[in-house]
Design a binder for these strands. Structure first.
Length: 122
DNA sequence: CTGTTGACGCTCT
DNA sequence: TAGAGCGCCAACA
């Protein structure tokens, strides 16, 4: 096959194999401890990517993926629940966070954000 | 090539 | 707190 072609997408591969950027992002998301949170920006800087790339990947998670990954532990800078702008999603994220003990203010911000913030190990 | 688009981030109103 | 404006960067039409 010509190396010129866009990487073939084997649909039967695990989603982690889709492409490196996504794989790395999802790997980090999967590593966020229960009851802790991290941000798009932190993940992005850690991988030398743009924060919007991270948002794009999480936003595009297939239902199956969303079920297996703690995507809800990723919030925006300052602990803001940025998924609020997507109908339904913000509500679900808050519910999932609360379910594991992470309090969220009525202003859609993670309570004690600084305390609960988790950073991937180098 | 240009233009648009993000579950972003930071600064300043 | 909410918005606006701008930076950022890959993906896509």
């Amino acid at each position: 096959m010509s190396p010129r072609t866009k990487r073939a997408i084997a649909i039967d591969e695990t989603p982690q194999e889709r492409d490196k950027a996504s794989a790395r992002i999802l790997t980090i998301v999967a590593a966020i401890p229960v009851g802790r949170v991290t941000t798009y920006g932190i993940i992005a800087r850690h991988l030398l990517l743009g924060p919007r790339q991270v948002a794009k990947v999480l936003g595009g998670l297939a239902a199956a993926e969303a079920k297996a990954l703690p995507w809800f532990r990723v919030v925006a800078a300052g602990g803001a629940i940025s998924s609020m702008k997507v109908p339904g999603v913000g509500r679900r994220q808050i519910a999932r966070l609360k379910a594991e003990g992470v309090a969220v203010t009525p202003f859609h911000r993670v309570e004690d954000f600084r305390l609960l913030l988790w950073t991937p190990d180098l």
